[in-house]
């Protein structure tokens, strides 16, 4: 029982890592007043670019860099659409998702059965020997540690620096921020591109560490789950960690149950992350909506 719990939690941290990167990216973007449903696409281009680069160079670190770059480019497209052209944010995000899905299926096709060097595993010396939690927390690949260091870093940036204050001001009251002399467009560009970079790294973890392969459309809605998680986490980077681990654990539990040959259809197991997200959104209701950056209200609540 303990062993199973440990492996579910450890697996949850691993499986939750792409979701955490994507969620943190979306927190930054939405705090600046831009919803990006294109994270789903950002994850895909990150996974694809990272995988192709690693396949050619055998260097997963270069792969991660390429993934970040590709995700950043995807973010740049969205920023151009919604900040410069003022297009509908939700529609532009979906367009980005469609575009990334098409481009990665096209470009990634020759790489479907290719083998790569995965992101290296690195047990943290000392800490990984801790009883009970050592293996759960400290025997992962470097991207996992990166994600858990990034969460408090983003929290510091958003809530304890002048930059963060400016970014949140743009998300709350863009007109006021603009009138007080903040470069609102530049800040939004920065936030959306940063979010894109993180979604790209999310993809890198997916293809270079978690699945270690490239499959068309492999993000499988993780980006949409991340967008929902931002709401659960009330737009807070530290609370995102909890949500990401819970969702990661659901993915990990799925593998555990399948491995143990429990007579439950794998199709029902596959539904659980999506159903859980929907139930969560229902239970949250309008209760914690007050935490929503004011600038998003028009995007999320056009009607009613």
């Amino acid at each position: 029982m303990l062993a199973m719990l440990q492996s579910v939690l450890g697996g949850g941290i691993r499986a939750g890592t792409p979701i955490l990167y994507a969620t943190l990216g979306e927190v930054i973007s939405e705090r600046a007043g831009v919803v990006n449903l294109g994270v789903e696409g950002g994850i895909l281009v990150g996974a694809c670019a990272g995988f192709i680069t690693t396949a050619h160079t055998q260097n997963p670190m270069l792969g991660i860099a390429a993934a970040a770059l590709a995700g950043g480019l995807a973010g740049l497209v969205h920023a151009f659409m919604v900040v410069t052209l003022r297009s509908n944010q939700i529609a532009s995000g979906l367009a980005l998702m469609f575009l990334c899905l098409g481009v990665t299926s096209f470009v990634g096709r020759p790489y479907v059965a290719v083998k790569i060097n995965a992101v290296p595993q690195a047990s943290v010396p000392g800490l990984s020997r801790l009883p009970l939690v050592g293996t759960v927390l400290f025997t992962h690949d470097v991207l996992v540690y990166g994600a858990y260091l990034l969460a408090p870093l983003i929290w510091l940036l958003l809530f304890h620096t002048k930059w963060g204050l400016a970014l949140r001001a743009v998300g709350e009251r863009p007109a006021v921020a603009y009138a007080s002399g903040l470069p609102t467009s530049l800040i939004q560009y920065g936030a959306v591109v940063s979010g894109g970079v993180l979604s790209g790294i999310a993809g890198a973890h997916l293809s270079l560490a978690y699945a270690r392969s490239w499959v068309e459309g492999m993000s499988n809605g993780r980006g949409f789950i991340a967008v929902a998680l931002v709401i659960f986490a009330t737009w807070h980077p530290l609370r995102s960690v909890v949500g990401a681990v819970v969702f990661g654990a659901v993915f990990a539990l799925q593998l555990q149950i399948q491995a143990r040959g429990v007579a439950l259809s794998p199709y029902f197991l596959d539904m659980t992350p999506y159903l859980l997200t929907l139930v969560g959104l229902l239970l949250m209701g309008r209760a914690r909506r007050h935490a929503m950056p004011e600038g998003l209200r028009a995007v999320f609540e056009g009607v009613t």
Partner: peptide, 18 residues
């Protein structure tokens, strides 16, 4: 959407998978 103000874009996308 009606009962809890859940954004319909996200919920319809998630339901597609289900």
């Amino acid at each position: 959407r009606w009962a809890a103000g859940v954004n319909e874009t996200i919920s319809t996308l998630l339901l597609n998978y289900v």
